[in-house]
């Protein structure tokens, strides 16, 4: 198979470009954070529920009422907030969108250059995780007013991009025979999507922990915590994303087992990556149980952070330090 060096070169340029754009977005988020005011903006929502097209029926106007009317499960979409900080936040998000597009181009070009899925070694895989994280993040920002968490989400993404693009960088090349299977599309594809989502969830939980620590002792994290979205918002953001990611992660592990049955002669063999994947899965199962247990919100957030630490551990430590059947990293 031939590697198209020109396309591979463009892909690398796009990768670098995406990193630069993300860093700029991070800086803008940082500025928004540094000068931002405390507390979150809440909004009452007026829903004209009767506005059904072409209806000759009497209009029914539903207006807020009742004791819970102002308790939002998650705040609505970004308000057209005014002022510098709101503007910076919006610019940061717009830049993140741009970065994601360039980043996507980088992966697509890499895929075209090598005529296969662009997640066959650790560099590509790390890059793909970051893209999944950015996209999940943008989806959440679009739906909920959580942009102020931007610094926390973009920072690990930029770090991971940087590490992937330097330490883990691998030249465009063909895959070894064991990886030539459509299962790489399914298994590794779902793994990186789940990992990216779990990154966002994990950082939301980090924010939650900072905020609650600050709430119990106002001296702690005073500079940071007060500017984050509210506790409840962070907690639910983490929960929502984890709940969406967990089945994807489960699916990825199951397809890994199916692939292992075809490639290695057994569906489960306690290979280090398999074992740590199970450990992460169990930790996330703990998270779901802990969050369902009354009075355990903080504990649950810790568990969520631990879960993501496990995912990262599996990515780096198990690939680079432990040797196992999963040693396809293409580094070292």
């Amino acid at each position: 198979m031939n590697v198209d060096a020109t396309l591979a070169g463009y892909s690398d340029w796009c990768f670098a470009g995406a990193v630069v754009v993300y860093v700029l977005a991070l800086l803008l988020h940082g500025a928004q954070f540094a000068v931002g005011r405390q507390g979150g903006t809440r909004r009452r929502e007026l829903v004209p529920a009767g506005a059904v097209e072409g209806s000759a029926r009497p209009r029914v106007t539903v207006v807020p009422d009742g004791p819970h009317a102002n308790v939002h499960p998650l705040p609505g979409p970004i308000e057209p907030s005014t002022g510098r900080t709101g503007r910076w936040g919006r610019m940061a998000v717009a830049l993140t969108v741009l970065g994601a597009l360039v980043h996507l181009a980088s992966l697509v070009l890499r895929g075209l250059a090598v005529e296969r899925v662009p997640w066959g070694n650790m560099y590509e895989f790390g890059s793909a995780i970051c893209l999944a994280a950015v996209v999940s993040w943008l989806v959440m920002v679009r739906r909920h007013d959580v942009a102020r968490l931007g610094v926390f989400v973009l920072l690990p993404i930029v770090l991971l991009m940087f590490v992937s693009g330097t330490l883990l960088y691998t030249q465009a090349a063909a895959l070894t025979p064991p990886l030539r299977s459509y299962w790489i599309v399914i298994h590794v594809g779902t793994i990186f999507i789940a990992s990216g989502m779990l990154l966002v969830a994990g950082m939301a939980s980090v924010g939650y922990l900072l905020r609650t620590a600050h709430a119990t002792n106002p001296a702690r994290f005073a500079g940071i915590a007060a500017r984050l979205p509210e506790e409840g918002v962070l907690d639910r953001l983490a929960y929502r994303v984890t709940v969406a990611a967990f089945p994807v992660f489960t699916f990825a592990i199951i397809t890994g087992a199916v692939w292992a049955e075809t490639a290695w002669g057994r569906y489960w063999g306690w290979d280090p990556k398999e074992t740590v994947a199970l450990v992460c899965w169990v930790i996330y199962a703990c998270y779901l149980h802990a969050r369902a247990t009354a009075g355990w919100r903080r504990g649950a957030a810790w568990v969520n952070v631990l879960g993501f630490a496990g995912v990262i551990f599996n990515l780096f430590f198990v690939n680079l330090v432990v040797t196992g059947l999963h040693s396809y990293a293409g580094v070292g």
């Binding site: 929502e45 829903v47 529920a49 009497p58 209009r59 029914v60 106007t61 539903v62 207006v63 807020p64 009422d65 009742g66 004791p67 819970h68 009317a69 102002n70 308790v71 939002h72 499960p73 409840g232 639910r236």
Partner: peptide, 13 residues
């Protein structure tokens, strides 16, 4: 026209 009042905070006790 019916006059309707609704509480929809999407509230979460």
């Amino acid at each position: 026209p019916a006059s309707v009042a609704a509480g929809d905070g999407g509230g979460t006790p």
